[in-house]
Design a protein around this nucleic acid. Sequence first.
DNA 1: CAGTATCCCATCCGATACTG
DNA 2: CAGTATCGGATGGGATACTG
Lengths: 144, 144
Amino acid sequence: METEAGSLYDGSCEVVAALDAIAGRWKLPILWRLAAGPVRYNELKRLVRGVTNTALTRALRELEADGLVERTEYPEVPPRVEYALSPAGRALEPSLEALVSWAGSRARGGVEVRRLAPDDDRTAPAPSTSDAGSRRTATSWRSR
Amino acid sequence: METEAGSLYDGSCEVVAALDAIAGRWKLPILWRLAAGPVRYNELKRLVRGVTNTALTRALRELEADGLVERTEYPEVPPRVEYALSPAGRALEPSLEALVSWAGSRARGGVEVRRLAPDDDRTAPAPSTSDAGSRRTATSWRSR
DNA sequence: CAGTATCCCATCCGATACTG
DNA sequence: CAGTATCGGATGGGATACTG
């Protein structure tokens, strides 16, 4: 529909653009933590293990700019700031759940991660090679 | 089991590690495209718009190393190589669907993307500031 | 408490050119 | 067709130090 040949759901431009909003080392972990409820800055820093001040702040600012999280500053004497998912952010909770459950199952040894086989035989199942040779000569498709 | 207190689903380490497998500019778009069925190299390059030879190959190699996609090489005269999701890769199809549908809805103007308000008033709703001042003196929490 | 300010390095990615 | 080789530039993230 919509004029353009194959675009909306074919894994291209628009999707890529939207995906950029959650790309980055810490965005997903942060969003996932926030999905459980509002959290203060330092609490977040503790919960999302390994994140540094700089990284956390940068990620939060970007998520805020993209309308996924909301920042609420309470003018109290010991400064208090809470971060929470915005309505738009809550829209991707299903995705987060799916992703996290997948990540969890894979972390639990469901799959051997990053295990390169030393001598992986990959020259393959030779599916009806019978006609090979009858095809164009070896370089016919290489125009020049 | 595994000893550790609070870890599996709290948005930290394990999940972060697993997420790394799909992190990168092109991994998700590629996986999404592959979810629709096996595709040849150059076809993939056309479908995932904007990707370059180098980026595509690199992403594919990593996805392969992480066991998410399978590469099948057919020993024919014009070389033919097909990429497809592995069983493990198919395990994250639900996540892909959720993600893509979210990305799609947001691309369709559901949310104003990356729109910074010029003078956003963010010093906030002052929730019962009545006790401010009665709290510890301004710098009491700053130990030194 | 909740950040900023810098500096620096690693990685990612794009562009270009070449090959089995 | 399906890649590899190389290089340069942008970005993201880490470490450290300091502040309203």
